[in-house]
Amino acid sequence: MTEKSNITLNINGRNHAIGVEPRRTLADAIREDCGQTGTHIGCEHGVCGACTVIVDGEPVRSCLMFAVQAAGKKIRTVEGLAKGDELHPMQRAFMEHHGLQCGFCTPGFLMLAVGVLEREPDISNEDLLDVLASNLCRCTGYQNIIKAVRAAAAEMRGAR
């Protein structure tokens, strides 16, 4: 064991003061130390994308960052998408287009899609398809995820 450092993670606007070893991944810290279990962990080596969160406006794999590296940054997870009882357009689109079945991959896809569309609202359909190839889903066959994200992208663009 190495010594724990005391850090503060700001997740969805709320500060969490935690003590972690440097080797603690951001994904584990979010779930285990901060109790925000909406972020899922699949492969722990960067392949599946289930752990995708938004750090300072960038969608990243939280299993490939150490928690100490995210101290002082603005972290957004799936828990922060809805405004009270009102779902984010991306969440609503996933429901309406059946973009999920078991739901394990869903938090990762939502944060990926929201993260990219906030950075590049006018991204082409072709590039969006390439973005969605970042994450794995074992259930849906992807078509309904693509439909949902395209629908939400149109709505997010309209709301600008």
């Binding site: 969608p59 990243v60 794999r61």
Partner: peptide
Amino acid sequence: VRHIAHYPIRMR
């Protein structure tokens, strides 16, 4: 660059 890994990996 578009051939390297995936978007979130390219962010880091």
